[in-house]
């Protein structure tokens, strides 16, 4: 207790600095469940009406919220699974196997990672158009996964690099194939990395806006981020309470994931076997 009191000046300053953020979050939550008079910010009634978008029938020309949520879920999950699977194998090869051009491959990964998505968008559009995946969820998933891969591979390579050679040597000497060694001995060692990467790519997919907005404008492939922009753009009837309610709905899975997995997420910055 006394220890805390010694730091009270710092705590006070930090509190003041973070106050705007805290107030913002507080009102985000309060406003979604209450109504208030036009000239006041103090709520006067508790209501769940702002969440009626969840059960009311969608307005003409607007996508159904559950369809949109399902799309977002499929989008984020598939992206995460693809990124993890490909990163797991590619990173292993890059970390352990000596193949021609390995150096350039590694260099290429870094360069790809440095490219902002928006600079590639026209080229991506043309490719999707040619292979006929424009305006489909599958197309957007492929693009998102491809763009996430450099990061994933790089992170996973870091984890593999930290696994001692001796473990593999022992496995090989006992007669296990290279695949068995990877599957049974190495993968368990990098499990924290896989887990963290899975969550990170899921969250990245969950919040992606630009790709679905540009590459899949149809109602069938809408995701929550594009759904929200359309809400705020309504210029004759801007409903901030509705916007905040959809925002809450959109953020809930993210908050839940952070609360449950926060320790595991930190692994991505540590990495590898400990001790």
């Amino acid at each position: 207790m006394s220890h805390n009191f010694r730091h009270w000046p710092i705590i006070t300053i930090l509190t003041i600095v973070s106050l705007p953020l805290i107030i913002m979050f507080a009102f985000q939550i309060i406003d979604t469940f209450t109504t208030h008079p036009i000239d006041s910010m103090i709520p006067n009634k508790v209501t769940f009406e702002q969440f009626s978008f969840l059960w009311d029938e969608a307005e003409t020309g607007r996508a159904n919220i559950w369809q949109v949520t399902l799309n977002t879920f499929i989008f984020a999950t598939t992206t995460a699974v693809v990124v993890c699977t490909v990163s797991m194998t590619t990173a292993y090869a890059l970390s352990r196997l000596n193949f021609p051009g390995r150096r350039y491959f590694l260099g290429g990964l870094i360069i790809l990672h440095a490219f902002p998505t928006v600079t590639l968008i026209i080229a991506i559009f043309l490719i999707l158009q040619i292979i006929g995946l424009y305006d489909t969820l599958l197309g957007v998933i492929m693009v998102k996964a491809a763009l996430e891969l450099p990061f994933g591979i790089w992170i996973m390579k870091g984890f593999y690099d930290n696994v001692p050679w001796e473990i593999e040597m022992a496995g090989v000497q006992d007669g296990a194939s290279r695949f068995t060694v990877w599957w049974k001995l190495v993968l368990p060692q990098v499990q924290p990395g896989i887990f963290a990467l899975m969550i990170f790519s899921f969250l990245s997919g969950w919040s992606e806006f630009l790709l679905p907005q540009v590459l899949a404008p149809g109602n069938d492939a809408q995701v929550l981020s594009t759904y929200m922009t359309a809400l705020i753009a309504d210029d004759t009837k801007i409903d901030f309470a509705l916007f905040k309610a959809v925002g809450m709905f959109y953020a809930l899975p993210v908050i839940a994931i952070y609360l449950i997995f926060q320790k595991k997420l930190m692994n991505i910055y540590g990495g590898g076997t400990k001790g």
């Binding site: 020309g61 607007r62 996508a63 999707l128 158009q129 424009y134 109602n219 809408q222 594009t226 359309a230």
Partner: peptide, 25 residues
Amino acid sequence: IEKKRDFGGWSEFKQAVTLAAEAGK
């Protein structure tokens, strides 16, 4: 009939129509 009006704004709508037309969709 499939209907859509949610595009963000005029510019997003025009972008969507242009790209979709380029893609033959």
